[in-house]
Design a protein around this nucleic acid. Sequence first.
DNA 1: AAATGATATGTAATCGATTACAAATCTTGT
DNA 2: ACAAGATTTGTAATCGATTACATATCATTT
Lengths: 330, 330
Amino acid sequence: MAGVSTATVSRALSKPETVAKETRELVLEAAAQTGYRVNLAARNLRSHRTGTIVVMVPNLGNPFFSRILSGIESVVVDRGLSVLVVDTQFAKSKMDLVSNYIHHSRADGFIVLDGSLPDEVVENLLDSSPQRPVIFACEWLEDERFSFVRVNNRRGASLAIDHLVGLGHSRIGYINGPVENILTKARFEGALTGFNEHDITIDAAWQFQGDFSLESGAVVARQWFALEDRPSAIFCANDEMAFGLISELNQNGVKVPEDLSVVGFDDIDLSAHFIPPLTTIRQPRTELGVSAAEMLIKAVDDRAPGGELQSKVLPVELMVRGSTAAPADR
Amino acid sequence: MAGVSTATVSRALSKPETVAKETRELVLEAAAQTGYRVNLAARNLRSHRTGTIVVMVPNLGNPFFSRILSGIESVVVDRGLSVLVVDTQFAKSKMDLVSNYIHHSRADGFIVLDGSLPDEVVENLLDSSPQRPVIFACEWLEDERFSFVRVNNRRGASLAIDHLVGLGHSRIGYINGPVENILTKARFEGALTGFNEHDITIDAAWQFQGDFSLESGAVVARQWFALEDRPSAIFCANDEMAFGLISELNQNGVKVPEDLSVVGFDDIDLSAHFIPPLTTIRQPRTELGVSAAEMLIKAVDDRAPGGELQSKVLPVELMVRGSTAAPADR
DNA sequence: AAATGATATGTAATCGATTACAAATCTTGT
DNA sequence: ACAAGATTTGTAATCGATTACATATCATTT
């Protein structure tokens, strides 16, 4: 219709600068007239690219990830790429993840928000051919072979402890996240550092085991209640557990921060609007997503055979709100 | 390697039943040996299917949608399909992007969670060729040309009013969602029905305008505060606004439910753990996602040329918790 | 005006599977 | 033992773009 060859049409559409202005306009005009759309399957087949990145999320139901996803999406959309979201929890088996997403030429790269992938899957991420860049975001692996972006979890936790000690607390408890989770470990280490710096020892009875869920926070509330000797403050490895804790305590007449100070971690949207507003460590979630996406796109563009590893650690910030106060006199 | 033709290999892999058992085993064996993986781009190109469904979400950052997504994903993964998530918020400025998803042979079908798509996009959904099935979930269009799954929003709202009236309230306020939003309209109508049934008229000063966000709930709290004549109960068109409202009131010494009863809508995870636990209308979010996915898969399989429209309205449930009580004597 | 290089376009191979159709083989009934 | 039908396999066309390479056109320099 434009009176040119298919090759010229292809170039006019995907590499406009290689075609004379006049011809280009003819082609674009004809394309608009006919409502032509490229067939992506054909393009992908021939060009060995997919225009898609895969994001592996441990649990889509958790609002914590939604902001990160939206950060990723905001960057990726600008580049004309699209995002395939996989909830690793639903992948029938881990094998499913491997074959379906990693090997099946589905993605130009991966962003992984799940630091607990089985070794088998991790190996496949590295072995897939052709190798696709992988960025771990938020959670990460101890493995040195991956790029990552995360916040300074240790520092966040020690900031929290500093804050509590600054208020006069010396009897401080801690709610852990799920065992084996890398965030759990880093935050606990940070808390320990904080304790050490202030010459505080933490009573084993004051280390509670949670799993990042609201419910587990509520369970800890009951455990705290049952203690004879209670800490005057508790640092929670994430905000949701703090909510569960505070809410359950409240049901039983225990007031935060009068009777117990509570610090969280993450600063999710609701934290500022909880009752009381939650003192917490702010993790810039949107930026985590944005950075991860930018790193990935850079890696995809460079496509150096080996590929340089990138890493980025974003700062955390202590948000002092209403859930912490000086300890009551005893 | 298996000593058969490519056609047989293809059949052994994608339609195993059409191949003799022995041959099939030979092929599978060889495939396993060589680590063969189908190239999806090639398959899609030839078979005119993509194995992908696109979900259009108004705002990925909103935790309300995460459960729905996870419901969708759980179904879709079982069918060996994958989910492409598009945040329409980012694409809206560039509607062509959204149209790209629609036309670019990217998906076998669509689930749309956004009832406020511009007409242009809606037309594209219908006109795309080949036509792909579309299911609206949660939000919907007044347009009769689409399948949908949603809850009984009207009934939910009137249940909420019934509950408040049952407690003895007759001075009831209402916080609307964003104007033009279909949920806003349906819930408001339901509330009006409730009012009518109990011969209550709602004061215009008690109709507040929100936008489903925490912040807008907080704004309403200040407006409520400024009123001379205040309602004794407020029904919020969603839970987040209720949180914002209660939290801001609390900062100013107003207690819920003693000074004001509050009912929300949605029953998101946090509602049961808020302070006080929020009385709300439960919307089965995971099921909404599951139903939407099932309806879509059915439509994709049938692929009747016209395609019968499907619709489903799920029930809501009143969850009575701590944010409502009988009005204080005045 | 011819030579050189830069720019623009066309021809045809190619990506890797699926599938219509034909051909070969096997079953079954008579 | 043979025809008819069912089952299995193979041949080769095909999906719709991209791109290596060849060729044509144009601008610039000497």
